[in-house]
C-alpha cells in the first residue's frame, strides 16, 4: 500500500564524505554536459533534433546510482542524458551521439533521445512516452527467469503515468513479482500540461494502489532521499518482494525540449525550485560538514569542465557515420536482402 514517507533533510551524517563528493561531481558533470550541449545546439547549430535536458533532476540520477549495483539495469524515456552519464556511458560518446557522429554511443543513429550502453546495463533512451515501462518489466522478467538478483530501474515522467502501458505493466509486474523499481520523475509538466490538468489523481504514487504495489513519494531534489527510497525498493526487489513505485518530485529548469520557452509556468515557480537546487544543497552539506574546502570544490569543477570540453573536442573531431550505415544494424543478418529500388 502506498505510504507517504517523510525523509529528513539533514541526513549528512548517514552518508560518507566520499558519497557526497561523488554525488557532487556526478551532478555537476550532468549539469555542465547539458548546459554545454544546449549551447552547442542553440549558438552553433552543432546538435539538432529533439533535445530534452535533465537540468534540475540530477539528484535522481545521483541517488539511484549509489543505491544500486553496476549489474542492475536502467531504462528510461527520452530525457536520458543524465541517467546515461550516471550509469557510465562515456561522456565523449554521449556528446558525439548528440553531434550525430560515428563515435556516438549509438553510432550516431539514436541522437539525444536514444542513448544506449548495453555494456554498462543502460538500455536506453526510448521515444514513445511510456513504452519503456513495458520493456523495463521485460528486462526484469529475464533477470527473474535466470534467477539472478539483479534489479531493473525503470524511469518515466509524469506524462507517461497516463498511458495504458503503465497500468498493464504495473498489473503484470505485481502478478509476477518482477524485480523492477518504477521511478516516476514527476517534474510536474507533461510537455506543457501540468499534472493537475491530466487527471484527478495528482499524486502519481497512488496509482500503485490499484495494483497493491508498494509506493512512496520522494523528494527528488535530494540525492539523500532518493538514495534511501531506492535502497529500500531495490532491497525489496532483490529479495523477491516484487516491484515498487517511487514518485520523485522534481523540477526541470528548462522547457520540455530545447524549443519550448515554457510560458505555461511562472518565473516565481521556477525560482522557488531553483532555491532547492539539488547541486547547491549537496554543496552546502559538503562545505558545512567540512568534507571539502572551496579550493577542493574548485578543483572538482575544473575537472568536470575539462571532461565536458574534451567531449566537445572529441565530438567535433569525430567522423560522420559512413553513408553505408543506412542499411546496417537493421537486422542481425549480415546479408539481409533489402529492397533498394
Amino acid at each position: 500500500m502506498a505510504e507517504k514517507t517523510q525523509i529528513a533533510k539533514s541526513v549528512a551524517n548517514k552518508f560518507s564524505k566520499e558519497t557526497y563528493l561523488y554525488w557532487y561531481e556526478l551532478m555537476q558533470l550532468i549539469r555542465q554536459f547539458e548546459l554545454t550541449a544546449e549551447e552547442k545546439y542553440k549558438m552553433e547549430g552543432k546538435i539538432r533534433g529533439f533535445f530534452h535536458a535533465y537540468v534540475g533532476q540530477e539528484a535522481i540520477a545521483a541517488g539511484c546510482i549509489t543505491a544500486t549495483r553496476p549489474e542492475d539495469l536502467f531504462i528510461t524515456g527520452y530525457r536520458d542524458h543524465g541517467l546515461a552519464i550516471a550509469k557510465g556511458v562515456s561522456v565523449n560518446s554521449c556528446m558525439a551521439e548528440l553531434y550525430g557522429k560515428a563515435t556516438g554511443n549509438a553510432k550516431g543513429k539514436g541522437g539525444s533521445m536514444h542513448f544506449f550502453g548495453k555494456d554498462v546495463n543502460f538500455y536506453g533512451g526510448h521515444g514513445i512516452v511510456g513504452a519503456q515501462i513495458g520493456v523495463g518489466a521485460g528486462l526484469a522478467f529475464a533477470e527473474q527467469y535466470r534467477s539472478s538478483d539483479n534489479v531493473v530501474l525503470c524511469f518515466f515522467g509524469d506524462g507517461a503515468a497516463r498511458q495504458g502501458i503503465l497500468h498493464e505493466t504495473f498489473n503484470l509486474a505485481m502478478l509476477w513479482k518482477l524485480p523492477v523499481v518504477f521511478i516516476c520523475e514527476n517534474n510536474n509538466y507533461a510537455m506543457g500540461t501540468s499534472v493537475e490538468r491530466t487527471s484527478v489523481v495528482i499524486d502519481i504514487y497512488k496509482l500503485a494502489d490499484g495494483y497493491e504495489m508498494p509506493a512512496d513519494t520522494v523528494d527528488g531534489m535530494s540525492a539523500e532521499a532518493v538514495h534511501e527510497s531506492v535502497t529500500r525498493a531495490v532491497k525489496r526487489a532483490r529479495e523477491k518482494g516484487g516491484p515498487t513505485l517511487l514518485e520523485m518530485k522534481t523540477y526541470r529548469y528548462k522547457g520540455h525540449s530545447i524549443s519550448d520557452p515554457a510560458k505555461y509556468r511562472s518565473k516565481e515557480e521556477l525560482e522557488e525550485y531553483k532555491e532547492k537546487d539539488p547541486i547547491h544543497q549537496i554543496l552546502l552539506t559538503i562545505l558545512s560538514s567540512g568534507f571539502a574546502t572551496d579550493p577542493e570544490i574548485k578543483t572538482i569543477n575544473e575537472r568536470v569542465a575539462g571532461i565536458v570540453a574534451e567531449s566537445v573536442k572529441f565530438a567535433e573531431e569525430s567522423p560522420w557515420p559512413d553513408d553505408s550505415e543506412v542499411l546496417k544494424d537493421i537486422y542481425m543478418d549480415k546479408d539481409y536482402p533489402f529492397i533498394v529500388d
Binding site: 538500455y123 523495463g136 522478467f141
Partner: peptide
C-alpha cells in the same frame, strides 16, 4: 512489452 524486454535481455 514484457516479451520485447525479455528478448532484449537474453531470452
Amino acid at each position: 512489452g514484457v516479451g520485447v524486454g525479455a528478448a532484449q535481455n537474453g531470452l
